[in-house]
Design a protein around this nucleic acid. Structure first.
Lengths: 356, 356
DNA sequence: TTCCCACATGGGATCGATGCCATATGGCGT
DNA sequence: ACGCCATATGGCATCGATCCCATGTGGGAA
């Protein structure tokens, strides 16, 4: 509290402050200075106080690389996501950061843009920096395998690559999808489209599975033509949705498998002036800000994304300091939030949403 | 390719692979192995090939801490933002990450939640890890001073703390606000409210300044009662907006100084069934997804946030590898995007938006 | 008095990559 | 025959914190 000026005082300050300099300043050895500042072993209280004072006065900040080199692990935690511009991943990153920071570690962030080669490069960087652990939303097996092979603790988030030896925290896509589609079926819809952009990861696959399961449970036959799979990173999903609706003008409801698809569907329905839910109901998997702000609000499967980030980071940290039990997968339950975009289908059979 | 198996092969792999082991494997020295892999100095081509093969075969990944310890700087770049859950900062982070990754560095992400003490802790961590440079949206002077004092290159983003010796990339808040409010004035509005949540940083301050400048330019008198300042991190901004509208039922347009305020204003206008723009026009500073999705679309000042992240990272990297010129501030121009939420005020004088 | 132990401090090896410097060889010019 | 330089390789100090071990001191018990 008293004299502790802001270290550096804005001056040139070329010389880095090391333990050595603290020791010289006080007239003791590095060993003792180290013990004093670390709080281990014996140091006379008076000397310890002088060392701490000198450290504060000179603005000493220990060098993490030196510590890491000796101790075999930096405090850094890697986080690999697929698209930070997507609110989903941003929320996830925020949740992770919060827990990691609370535990006194830092997050190293890498965005692989859904590209496995970039993911592998990120994983290599994590190994190189001796990251204490890594959290990732896998885009393939390779990155996870590389990390696990190097003995780095890994927790997968949102999806699983299937690599053995790593924990995972995921959201139950199948039951969320089943509930959402079940809701539409219960309202009386019989021609429900599903729009996905990937079925290579277990998220997309399981949402599709849930869609089918709901149909089976309701005894409603499935039609392959009602499944619109745009493939990863489509150029202009809205246009694809438009073409699909032209080809299938009889659909009365759409289930969008993620927030990107939901936006495309919503925009296209608005563009062609199709009343929601009058002519066409819709449900989104993943609930973003805009979905509760638009008129009518979108019925959506809310995923506890931020919490998923918290939990995953928590699990990783437990694994890092000592947990050697079996790898486990924790599953979070999503929640269907009913809003205005879903209603019973129009009774008039002629009212379809095809192009004018 | 040929034999290059996935390193580690999933087995236990206890022993870390170091340069030493590569050297032993090939029957040469660390020095030579280092030169071979780094590409500096003399190494016989045949020997170099054998060393590279051994490195690949054993899955050698150089230890960054050792390199950092020797070289005085890690390749890490710190990024300090105020709230990752806010799309604005998420976009910013995405832009930064992209440029940083392209330059072969990594981003260390810290979210200070707008709290200066946390920002200082983050800054200390950056110094400790010998970050090559730091990007931050300042929440005070202290973090920047600490970093600059330790000789770490700093680029401030979105706001400036006023600390000398660091670059900055910002968006011209004042002119953006002037344009937005000028647009409302040109439409004939004379009682335009402005809603801000901070005037302590230069963003909020300059947006308010732009609001005033537009009024002066149009010769419209300012009324203090039309300025709603909620202060940082208000509990329930929507309620505050409601109280404000009750107290000032004669406003015909609202200028929201950022995306959080815009959401509160929008929600409240919708809640009380006030037609937009029929009874009340509105403009947002900052343009998010939902603003173009709602009906009618929100007129907004679009900020090139992602690009700001790119540019800031670019500037920092230039500064890191050698740029020793004077600190500079680059200013990006925002752009007013006209959508449906702004129109001429209702001619009927009695039509106000007070509580029912 | 002697021994032991708690207390206290310093010496120095260690982590792994880097890069300077010493050493060594062979070819070529004078 | 001598020297020089390009080529090639290894030895070793270095970066800074940590921690084991050696050393040293004083007090209390036997």
């Amino acid at each position: 509290m008293s004299g502790g000026k802001a270290p550096g005082g804005g001056r040139g300050r070329r010389a880095r402050v090391t333990l050595r300099q603290i020791a010289d300043e006080v007239g003791t050895s590095q060993s003792t200075a180290s013990r004093a500042l670390a709080g281990h072993g014996y140091v006379a209280p008076e000397l310890k106080a002088r060392i701490e004072e000198a450290a504060a006065r000179l603005g000493y900040v220990p060098d993490i690389s030196a510590r890491t080199l000796k101790g075999h692990s930096s405090g850094l935690i890697g986080l690999l996501v697929s698209d930070l511009r997507n609110q989903f991943y941003a929320q996830l990153a925020a949740g992770v950061e919060q827990t990691v920071a609370a535990a006194g570690h830092q997050v190293v962030l890498v965005d692989d843009h859904g590209d496995e080669a970039e993911a592998v490069r990120g994983a290599k960087a994590f190994v190189a920096m001796r990251a204490a652990g890594v959290l990732l939303a896998p885009v393939g097996r390779e990155a996870t395998e590389l990390l696990v092979g190097h003995g780095t603790p890994v927790v997968e988030v949102d999806r699983r690559s299937g690599v053995r030896g790593c924990d995972a925290v995921i959201i139950d896509s199948e039951s969320g999808a089943r509930e959402a589609v079940g809701h539409l079926l219960a309202l009386g819809h019989r021609r429900i489209a599903v729009v996905v952009d990937e079925t290579v990861w277990d998220t997309g696959r399981n949402r599709l599975k849930g869609y089918r399961a709901a149909h089976r449970a309701a005894g409603v036959p499935l039609a392959r033509r009602l499944v619109l799979d745009l493939g990863l990173r489509p150029d202009d999903p809205r246009r694809d949705v438009a073409a699909f609706l032209d080809a299938n003008p009889d659909v009365t409801a759409v289930f969008a498998a993620n927030n990107v698809m939901a936006e495309a569907v919503w925009q296209e329905l608005k563009r062609r002036g199709a009343a929601v839910p009058g002519r066409c109901s819709m449900v989104s998997f993943d609930d973003l800000t805009w979905m509760r702000v638009v008129e009518p609000g979108l019925t959506a499967v809310r995923q506890p994304v931020y919490e998923m980030g918290n939990r995953a980071a928590q699990l990783l940290i437990e694994r890092i300091d000592g947990g050697h039990g079996r790898a486990e997968t924790r599953t979070l339950r999503p929640e269907l939030v009913l809003r205005g975009s879903t209603a019973a289908p129009a009774s008039a059979p002629g009212a379809d949403i095809g192009a004018s």
